[in-house]
Computed example of a mutant assay.
Amino acid sequence: MSARILLALLPLAAACAALPAQASDAHADPKPAPVAAPARKPLPEGDAMDKLRERLAEKLGATKAAPGNPNVVRVTARPGAEPAPAEKAAERAAHAAAPPPRPARPAPSAHAAHGGHWGYNGPGGPERWGELKPEFAKCSTGTRQSPIDIRDGVRVQLDPVQFSYQPSAFRVLDNGHTIQVNVAAGNSIEVMGRRYELLQFHFHRPSEERIDGRQFDMVAHLVHKDLDGRLAVVAVLLERGSAHPIVQSVWNNLPLEKGDEVGARGTLDLARLLPPEPQRQYFTYMGSLTTPPCSEGVLWMVMKQPVPISPEQIGIFARLYPMNARPVQSAAGRLIKESE
């Protein structure tokens, strides 16, 4: 029972004490009834109880007795009644104990909506690669990143790269970032006393590398790996000119959908993708992958002599990937060697 009801019952209890005692209890002491004052006659039992119920209902804001049972009083809150101080304190305690409402969940940002997918513009562009996933952190924290603008190379007598390429079966993959050509085993290079197996090559437009600030129409990156898992990339610069037969063979087997891989019927003579001998001088430096996760410790060899590619062949790639080149990164004082 609330404090408000208890306070309301106090005057009623006093009123009840003034009423004559009732003989409804069979074990009550048989005392004679007190003599009533001549000026006041005691109320009949029924009238006294009715008066008591009416006064109680008036105090508590109750309705009349329930039909069929005159001893039941229905109590309702009085409209607009001010809660008693004790009730207010109880309400404040209950409100303090209740858990705070959950804040509304913020709408996902454009970056979060990107789902960690990287690209070359927008929320997943190169300036944000390092934030997309923990394993991409090197893209923003690395100190030996690629590509670079190749300047001030130290001219030395470099050993030529020994290419052991042969006609090979190949498969063409549109991986959503570039056109990649996966080649059969058996192609390799040897440089600085190490042998690296060719895994695949792919294209960028425009060239990611620059030489003394000059950027080329496209570039092909030939990715190799040695038995210890170390990577070596040969970059072949492509500039506008005549049609390139190796590039055309790749374009002839382009997948119709991104993510698809098409197995070609013929073979590629990979040596024809390179500049002709003896024009295979190169720049070399230590860098990274130019796409996430931007792993460092990659040996780079950029061929100094570009090879031709026709405007039509450039246009075919541009329809799929108008621009997929990472901006140049700081050389950060790295040693760049240039073959004579």
Rank of each mutant, 00 (worst) to 15 (best):
Q22P: 05
A332F: 07
S140I: 07
V298Q: 08
C294I: 11
S164L: 10
G186H: 13
P67M: 12
L12S: 08
P306Q: 01
D50I: 10
N69E: 12
G119Y: 11
V236S: 01
V75I: 05
R151F: 03
Q157H: 14
A65V: 10
S288K: 09
G176F: 09
K51H: 09
V219R: 03
H224E: 01
G297F: 09
F203K: 00
Q166I: 05
Q305I: 15
A39K: 03
H177L: 10
S249D: 11
E208T: 13
D159L: 10
N182P: 07
G61H: 07
P206Q: 07
P278V: 08
S295A: 15
R78T: 13
L56N: 09
P103V: 05
Y321V: 01
D50K: 05
A93S: 12
L10A: 15
P306L: 03
A37Y: 00
D29E: 12
V302M: 08
F317V: 04
V247D: 07
N253L: 10
G124E: 00
P70A: 10
L52M: 10
E338K: 15
L173F: 15
R210P: 02
D25H: 12
S140L: 08
I336H: 01
L289N: 08
K64W: 13
A14I: 04
S249V: 11
S330M: 00
V156A: 06
G186F: 01
R194M: 08
K64G: 14
G80Y: 09
R210D: 03
F283L: 06
D152Q: 14
P83L: 07
R265Y: 07
A3P: 04
R4N: 14
G80Q: 03
L274F: 14
A96Y: 02
L320T: 13
P101L: 12
L132E: 09
K64H: 15
W118N: 04
D226S: 12
E197W: 04
R151P: 03
P83C: 00
L12V: 05
M323W: 09
V181K: 00
A33F: 13
E58P: 02
R151L: 09
H177P: 02
R326D: 05
T141V: 11
V298M: 03
G333C: 11
A36Q: 07
G125K: 09
A17D: 04
Q162T: 12
L227V: 12
F216M: 10
P147N: 10
L237C: 11
A17M: 07
R92V: 01
I309E: 06
N182G: 04
G241W: 11
P278C: 05
K133M: 11
S207I: 00
D152W: 13
E208N: 00
A84P: 06
L173H: 14
I150Y: 03
P70E: 08
M49Y: 14
Y285P: 04
S207Q: 00
R214I: 06
A98M: 13
G119V: 11
S2W: 02
A17Y: 09
N69R: 13
M49L: 15
